[in-house]
Design a protein around this nucleic acid. Structure first.
Length: 805
RNA sequence: GCCGGAGUGGUGGAAUUGGUAGACGCGCUGGACUCAAAAUCCAGUGUUCCUUUGGAACGUGUGGGUUCAAGUCCCACCUCCGGCACCA
């Protein structure tokens, strides 16, 4: 016999399960540690080997922290509302809940096979009424705060999916899911006022221990810019056209204005002669999909026939409409400054509009619009000032004259929060005939999803719920008035906005979570997941959390203190794993062949956690060999503790190696550098294996080091060493500094930067003596003889560098 | 175009304060064990060159620079990946 994971792994999994080894207690005097994975959508395909990468990393942390005396919360659940189950329902008529529960069972089975130390008593699924009842409750809070509103606006409509999408769900004018074209369509939809939190969402990023690039993505997405809003009087009218600009200093160069084709004043400003052209242009712009709009950057536009007065120059300037100005940003209108703006230059050239430079470009500048710094010219009282001062002076002037104000704008838009779907949270509200709305009280929740006959969208831009008349048209039991329910449902992101709070108190039927427990467990100490959620889930969740914070319902400003992203596991050919490429590796197969410990260890050994890494079947065999070698280090042929394991004093060298290994594994585990921690353990096992006698005092601590990484094997060996219980709560081994410093070190000797010799010296040797010894070496003499020694440098314990001429 | 990140042997990757580049694993080569194979163990393995024990030169995407010393710092550039993209 030998190491056989197929026997020991299920055995320990059963043990952990039966003993509830990983159940987290909500009290106690231990410091807490909350380590969380981004919970998965339970798809019908089951796990692929990419999933367990992140889960293994968090599991190592969870197990490590338990051994360092922490009370660890390590939960798992299901983001179980979502499109695939609904699409399956449309095709087969199977209720999405049925599909979802089946998939959850499969996911859970696979996760349990990997030996993850989740506290399964805290499992939640966002699609269960016990859970979404509270999602609905949070929505009512948002509504009461004025942060949820129904608005008629041009939304991202995806005809293929039959639903609207949030800005965050649209990439390059195509739906992120499925890659279908998206068009702008005016519709009445529920929106969440995330923009009210733009500044705080931006500001509070600074204090988070998150990867810098994720913070940058969010900063870009929020897109803060400082500038001014200025009113331009329209000639022959009382109207004042408000524009936003980040360059008030260039106002003397504003030679025309542009409105977005969707701007509400277009009709009013259009003269009779221009009416036809303007209408045609508006129709054309409306028909374009977002993708078309992005592909052709060729400037188009039409003159409205009206003029505005430039407040700086008092000159009349023409008002145009063009689709390079977006209705959704700023005021949907701009002052065009072709001299200092590339887009405006391009437009001005094409339509033969005047161009005036108001910033002096450098002498060697041969471009068109000049966007850099320089002294103001042609700008009246600003002349000679550089951009920053000119901006300041102009803004002050505008404010003084009552023509404009300082203004900060954000690219971030309000969050489109409704979907024309069945499989999502129903909105907990009633709409009365007079247009008023009543959100439901907590004791009326959950508002259950009704059963439907068909899961297809109604086709009219309404969701499937619209067809369930008896559910939609009700009499409000509270007021007795006739009312209609909202037929849209919430997007998938709703449930994941607060699940980390429910894990704290998952079975509470009185409230969403207990405030005391929340104070104890929050914030999440380590949050791990894929980069794909950088601006969606992570921004939405931060938003909800801040609202809950303002309501005094949570105790921290931010939910996730430390965030890390795992990379992708690529196929063996280096391409993204997918069915169509035929390079998918199924964890079930890998576990059957190599065991869960080998899979876990291999996923971690492959390379740095955050990088993309290709799968290699030979590679996992190497890790498996390491586990077998470890087994043989402890066990004899009969699988008993090897007689070579003895109660003897270890030699100094082995003791040093042990402490070096404890040190390395400890610091590398803390830093999530699991690949190098594993290679240090390999070094240890290789060296220890070469010993005929294996001191128990060295082998025991090593099992504990291995435990977070290969928990089944470690538990088994721990038992063989004579311990009766799980090692889950054994104290983590401590290293002793005295074994980390060597008595003697190898010092290299360089001559002009090239290594020429090596020297064994005492660690605390006198620098002058080391230098002298280096210079005396025959190998060194060969390079220095006949040369002038300019200087000799000694870096203690590292090297001697001799400089000769 | 703008903002990030990366580029190291045949290969995945080490080297986290500038100090022996290539730890550990895979692959490959040779050997031991075996009737044989598998498994396991041992040795070797950056490239080129020299007559060997042993040396030498070159070598971390490219070209410069700083330094006694550069994968690491500075300047310019190339390639790949991710994000944003007419955001005024």
């Amino acid at each position: 016999m030998a190491y056989d994971p197929s026997i020991i792994e299920p055995r320990w999994q059963r043990y952990w399960d039966e003993h509830k080894t990983f159940a987290a207690s909500d009290d106690g005097d231990k410091p807490k540690y909350y380590v969380l994975d981004m919970f998965p959508y339970p798809s019908g395909n089951g796990l692929h080997v990419g999933h367990p990468e992140g889960y293994t990393a968090t599991d190592i942390m969870a197990r490590y922290k338990r051994m360092t005396g922490h009370n660890v919360l390590h939960p798992m659940g299901w983001d179980s509302f979502g499109l695939p189950a609904e699409n399956h329902a449309i095709k087969t008529g199977t209720h999405p809940r049925e599909t979802t529960l089946k998939n959850i069972a499969n996911f859970k089975r696979q996760l349990q096979m990997l030996g993850f130390s989740f506290d399964w008593d805290r499992e939640v699924a966002t699609s269960e009424p016990d859970y979404y009842r509270w999602t609905q409750w949070i929505f009512t809070l948002l509504y009461q705060q004025g942060l949820a509103y129904e608005g008629e606006m041009a939304v991202n409509w995806c005809p293929a999916l039959g639903t609207v999408l949030a800005n965050e769900e649209v990439k390059d004018g195509l739906s992120e899911v499925g890659g279908h074209p998206v068009v702008r369509k005016p519709m009445k939809q529920w929106m969440l006022r995330i923009t009210a939190y733009a500044e705080r969402l931006l500001e509070d990023l600074d204090e988070l221990d998150w990867p810098e690039y994720i913070k940058d993505l969010q900063r870009n997405w929020i897109g803060r810019s400082e500038g001014a809003e200025v009113d331009f009087p329209v000639q022959g009218s009382e109207c004042k056209l408000r524009i936003f600009t980040t360059r008030p200093d260039t106002m003397f160069g504003a030679t025309y204005m542009v409105l977005s084709p969707e701007h509400p004043w277009v009709e009013e400003l259009t003269t009779a002669e221009q009416s036809e052209a303007v209408k045609a242009y508006q129709a054309e712009a409306a028909a374009k999909s977002d993708r078309d709009r992005q592909i052709s950057k060729e400037k188009t536009g039409v003159f409205t026939g009206s003029y505005a007065l430039n407040p700086a120059t008092d000159q009349a300037i023409p008002i145009w409409i063009a689709d390079y100005v977006m209705m959704g940003y700023g005021t949907g209108a701009i002052m065009a400054v072709p001299g200092q703006d590339e887009r405006d230059w391009e437009f001005a050239e094409k339509f033969d509009l005047p161009i005036l430079r108001t910033v002096q470009p450098p002498a060697d500048f041969d471009g068109q619009a000049y966007t850099g710094d320089g002294p103001a010219i042609n700008s009246g009282f600003l002349d000679g000032l550089h951009v920053a001062e000119a901006k300041e002076k102009m803004t002050a002037w505008l404010e003084e004259k009552g023509l404009g104000t300082r203004k900060i704008n954000y690219k971030l838009r309000d969050w489109l929060f409704s979907r024309q779907r069945y499989w999502g949270e129903p909105f907990p509200l009633l709409k009365f005939d007079d247009g008023s709305i009543r959100v439901m009280e907590p004791d009326e929740l959950p508002l259950l999803l009704p059963e439907v006959d068909k899961y297809e969208p109604a086709g009219t831009g309404e969701g499937p719920l619209a067809t369930v008349t008896e559910w939609v048209e009700v009499t409000d039991p509270v007021t007795g008035r006739k009312a209609r329910r909202e037929t849209n449902t919430m997007p998938q992101w709703a449930g994941s906005c607060w699940y980390y709070l429910r894990f704290i108190d998952p079975r509470n039927s009185e409230r969403a979570w207990d405030p005391e427990k929340e104070k104890y467990w929050m914030p999440v100490d380590l949050y791990l997941g894929g980069t794909e959620h950088a601006v969606l889930h992570l921004l939405y969740a931060r938003f909800w959390h801040k609202v809950l914070f303002d309501l005094g319902l949570v105790s921290t400003k931010e939910p996730f203190k430390k965030l890390r992203n795992q990379g992708m596991i690529l196929g063996e050919n280096g391409e993204k794993m997918s069915k169509s490429r035929g390079n998918v590796v199924n964890p079930d197969d890998v576990i059957a062949q190599q065991g869960a410990d080998a899979l876990r260890l291999y996923l971690m050994f492959l390379g740095p956690l955050e990088r993309d890494k290709p799968w290699n079947t030979k590679g996992i065999e190497g890790v498996r060999r390491f586990l077998e070698r470890t087994w043989r280090l402890y066990c004899d042929e009969e699988d008993n503790l090897s007689p070579q394991v003895q109660d003897v004093e270890p030699d100094q060298e082995l003791l040093r190696l042990l402490h070096k290994t404890i040190h390395a594994v400890t610091t590398m585990t803390e830093d999530l550098r699991f690949n190098t921690a594993i290679s240090q353990m390999m070094v240890f096992v290789n060296e220890a294996t070469s010993r005929q006698v294996r001191p128990r005092t060295v082998l025991e601590p090593f099992v504990l080091l291995l435990a977070p990484y290969a928990p089944h094997l470690a538990e088994e060996l721990w038992g063989k060493l004579g311990h009766g219980e799980t090692l889950t709560y054994e104290p983590w081994p401590q290293y002793d500094e005295q074994y980390l410093v060597e008595d003697t070190v190898t010092v290299v000797v360089q001559v002009n930067g090239k290594v020429r010799d090596q020297l064994e010296v005492a660690v605390d040797a006198d620098p002058e003596q080391v230098k002298a010894a280096a210079l005396a070496s025959t190998k060194i003499r060969k390079w220095t003889d006949g040369k002038h020694i300019v200087k000799t440098i000694y870096v203690p314990g590292k090297l001697v560098s001799v400089v000769v001429k």
